[in-house]
Amino acid sequence: MSDSKFIDTPEGRRIAYHKTEGAGPCVVFLGGLKSDMMGTKAVYLEDWARAEGRAFLRFDYSGHGESSGNFAEGCIGDWHEDTLAAVGALTEGPLVVVGSSMGGWQALLLARQRPERIAGLVGIAAAPDFTEDGYWANFTEAQKQTLAEVGQVELPSDYMEPYVITRRMIEDGRNRLVLRDPLTLPFPVRLLQGTADTAVSTATAVRLLEHAQSPDMHLTLVKDADHRFSDTHCLALIVQAIKEVSAQ
C-alpha cells in the first residue's frame, strides 16, 4: 500500500490522506470517531474505486490515525474544518460523500456548507448530533458535574478503549447540530443501518430519514448487522448505495 501524503490546513493542522485519481464524481470517505483511514470500509472502497476507475479520497481527521494532534483535544468543529480543507485542496467537481458513524454527521455538515459540491450522500450508521443526544442526554448528574469541574469524562465503548469526552466536545457539538433546524439535502441519499448496532440506534436513522428533506432518500435496515457494518454483505450494500446515488 502506498505511503500517505499530507496537507496543512488553514488552522495549522497536518492531515494525512490517500487519493486515487479517476473519473468522477469523486467518492470521499469520512470515517467515524477514533477510526482512521486504514479501516476495513475505507480500504475496501478504495480498492473498489480503483478497479472501477473512480476518483476516491480517504483521510484522517486531526487527532486520528497519521494526522497531527491529540484526539482528546479535538471536537466536531475541528474535524469539520479538516473535512472542508481536505475536500477543498484535494478534490474538484461533484462528490459522493460516504460517512460512517460520526462521519455521517460530518457528511451532513459538509452538505450544509458545500451543497453545490454534493452529487449524492451515503450514511453508514450515521450519528448526527450524538454529542448532545447520545452523550449529554445520557450523562448522570455526577458525570455532568465531573465534566464541568474536571473538563472530561471517560465512557466505555463496545468497540475500542474508553472514549474521553471533553467539555469542549460537548459545547462545540451544540454549535453543529443538524437535527434541530431544517436540513435540506437536494441530492440522492442512502442510509444504511444495522439492527444490532449498539452505538447508533435504528431510532436515530429513522429520525434522520424523517427530518431531512431530499428528493430521493432511502433507509435500509440490515438485520443483525452491528456498528462496524463491514462484513462481505454490508460492504456490498455500501457499494450498491454509492452506485445508486452516483447514477443520478
Rank of each mutant, 00 (worst) to 15 (best):
W136H: 12
L183G: 06
A85C: 15
T195R: 12
Q152K: 12
F229D: 03
L95G: 02
R168Y: 05
S214V: 13
G22M: 07
S101K: 03
S157H: 08
D78S: 07
F56I: 00
R174Y: 12
I76C: 08
D197L: 12
G120F: 06
P128I: 02
Q213W: 04
G173C: 07
T198W: 12
A126H: 03
R114K: 10
T184P: 02
M37E: 05
T131Q: 06
M169G: 00
V97Y: 02
L45T: 00
E141K: 10
E52G: 00
L237Y: 08
D172Y: 06
V98C: 11
T9A: 07
K223D: 15
F187Q: 01
Y61V: 01
L147S: 05
D36W: 04
P94Q: 08
Y163C: 01
Q145C: 15
A49P: 02
S157P: 02
T184E: 15
A199R: 04
I242E: 04
T198L: 11
C75E: 05
M102F: 04
S214R: 15
V206M: 11
L191P: 02
L191A: 03
P215Q: 14
Q106L: 15
V153M: 07
W136E: 14
L208E: 04
L183I: 09
L95S: 05
P115N: 08
S62K: 01
H80S: 12
T232C: 10
T91V: 06
D231F: 04
A205W: 02
L109P: 09
P94A: 13
I238W: 01
A148G: 04
R13G: 03
F229K: 02
A127K: 00
P156T: 11
S100C: 14
T202Y: 07
E81Y: 03
Q106P: 12
H227R: 11
L237S: 06
G22A: 11
R58T: 00
P115G: 10
S246V: 01
A127H: 00
D226I: 05
E171R: 11
W79Y: 04
G74M: 12
L219Y: 09
V222N: 08
G88E: 08
S214A: 12
A85L: 09
